[in-house]
Design a protein around this nucleic acid. Structure first.
Lengths: 131, 131
DNA sequence: CAGCATCCATGTAGATACTG
DNA sequence: CAGTATCTACATGGATGCTG
């Protein structure tokens, strides 16, 4: 009977804490995505990374290649991406000076995520233009 | 000889337009991601979607489950997600009224993208806490 | 070429209070 | 419970012009 009672108590405790567990589980699933979003925030970080995934680029190449971006935003976002070590900036000591941007290996590690996002975006565009 | 000349011309033309093609290719890869980002913009849309991927929720459940979100932001973002048909809002005519939010199938279709983002986020957190 | 400075508009967020 | 209203503050983004 003590066994019986104990069993029930465990079940009860589990039941009592079910919501809390789900809660924690859910938060645990959200947190890493928030972490990613924190680094990739804003409209331009992913476009910049995609642009560089096609090869090293110079500032003005990127400015031409990324639709609608301004110099100001490109400059600002490149700096943040560099600080987070997703992008590398190399200055060649020529006249005039040449600056080349490239993806680090770490930056390239975003490829699978970007690829999935792109797949979804393609479906999404199809869906909204269909309507 | 005419054949030879033609071949060279084609090659030359292709070479001439190589940069333009790369440019268009790159923009074509960026656009769908921008489309996705447009719907998912802001800090809270993905966390909300993740929260609902664990089951239907009521407003205050979500407010408790998503770290740091305010009622105001939750309300605002839910409305936008509903407009984009990623989230469904069901009102039960009880007293007091019960409102249940759920993911649409379309909302669920973001799962693979979110999953990849989460993987990256986990690696990222490990990386930055290691340093 | 590779940006930076400036000004301005909009967006995002928090605090607090309030409603049906 | 499920939000809305208001106010405040800072962040983000855009336009334009300018520099070494």
């Amino acid at each position: 009977m003590s066994t019986q009672t104990e069993s029930m108590n465990v079940a009860e405790v589990k039941e009592e804490h079910k919501e809390l567990r789900d809660h924690s589980t859910c938060m645990g699933m959200i947190q890493p995505v928030q972490d990613a979003l924190y680094v990739l925030n804003g409209k331009w970080k992913l476009p910049i990374i995609i642009s560089l995934s096609f090869g090293n680029k110079r500032f003005s190449e990127m400015a031409r290649e990324i639709p609608k971006i301004t110099d100001r935003m490109l400059s600002k976002e490149l700096r943040e991406l560099e600080m987070n070590q997703l992008v590398k900036r190399t200055v060649y000591d020529t006249v005039p000076v040449v600056v080349e941007y490239s993806l680090t290996d770490y930056g390239s590690s975003l490829d699978p995520a970007i690829s999935e996002l792109r797949k979804w975006g393609i479906q999404h565009r199809e869906r909204i233009t269909r309507k």
